[in-house]
């Protein structure tokens, strides 16, 4: 194993600074007592955090996003588990096409999906419906759940299932007692990734949300492109805090590198 030289370490420090800079600045500015985006050099204040919690629109959007992410991640899991079983366990015609279809939201830009959903819903007269918003998010996050479940299915020792069969377990018992427990890490990891991706999704949602279903990222985008005050920094700091906690949880449970980097 080679060691990194001093040049490499300086380079590395700069990259780390570059990656962290915007988030550090956001978190610091969030504590400013001033009315403008300034560093809290002299004193710290929580007034902008209080402002966030009193801002009805932001809170409504936050809960809206939470509900949306919970529902869409769960729906995508229920779609992905049987689909993944079909894809890994059976040879059938159109299997590759099906796999490509399920992973297509990764390749199709969210911008295009947003436009397409908007067109569909306007023809259906369903614009602004929360239920349909959930469906669009389920589509967008399905590839994440599917990929993780596919990965755990393919890496699973199928002889564990065969062993259970030889010991007298029926197909349903094998599924409940062996397959599902072994799939659980993949399912929960996929669910969490799906949750985060739904919670953070902006580009597609901005086309599909209506004033009553505005999600938090859309609300923040609108707010940031119109006025800039430290409340935006406070919201951002809160989101960074949530993301950090999620990251630590994910890392402890699954290893974030494995989850995000995948199997290559």
């Amino acid at each position: 194993m080679q060691r990194n030289g001093p040049v490499a370490l300086i380079f590395h420090s700069l990259v780390v600074a570059f990656m962290l800079a915007p988030m550090v600045v956001v978190c610091l500015v969030a504590f400013t007592p001033e009315n403008t985006l300034t560093m809290p050099w002299n004193s710290l204040s929580l007034r902008w955090f209080e402002a966030v919690f009193e801002h009805a629109d932001f809170m409504a959007s936050f809960w809206n996003s939470v509900r949306l992410a919970l529902l869409s991640a769960t729906i995508s899991t229920f779609l992905a588990v049987p689909a993944a079983l079909a894809i890994t366990r059976y040879e059938f015609r159109g299997r590759d096409a099906l796999n490509a279809l399920f992973l297509s939201p990764l390749i199709i830009p969210h911008l295009v999906l947003g436009v397409a959903f908007l067109r569909l819903f306007s023809l259906m007269g369903a614009t602004g419906s929360f239920a349909w918003l959930v469906a669009t998010h389920a589509i967008v996050v399905s590839p994440y759940t599917l990929r993780l479940i596919l990965a755990s299915l393919t890496s699973m020792d199928r002889n564990a299932e065969n062993a259970a069969r030889t010991l007298g377990a029926g197909e349903w018992t094998v599924f409940c007692r062996i397959t599902m427990p072994l799939l659980l890490p993949g399912i929960s990891g996929g669910w969490l990734l799906a949750f985060i991706n739904s919670f953070d999704e902006l580009t597609m949602s901005i086309f599909v949300t209506s004033p009553s279903t505005v999600t938090l990222p859309v609300r923040m985008y609108m707010y940031a492109s119109e006025s800039i005050d430290p409340m935006m920094a406070a919201v951002s700091a809160l989101m960074i805090a949530v993301a950090t906690v999620t990251m630590i949880v994910l890392d402890r449970m699954f290893g974030l590198d494995r989850l995000l980097v995948g199997k290559g």
């Binding site: 780390v16 988030m23 953070d200 923040m220 960074i240 993301a243 990251m247």
Partner: peptide, 23 residues
């Protein structure tokens, strides 16, 4: 450091972009 580099993926793009607009 791998977490430091890829962790920001979990932070909303809006938040990170807002950070840059301040910088």
């Amino acid at each position: 450091f791998l977490l430091v580099i890829i962790g920001p993926l979990l932070v909303s793009v809006v938040v990170r972009t807002f950070g840059w607009s301040m910088l």
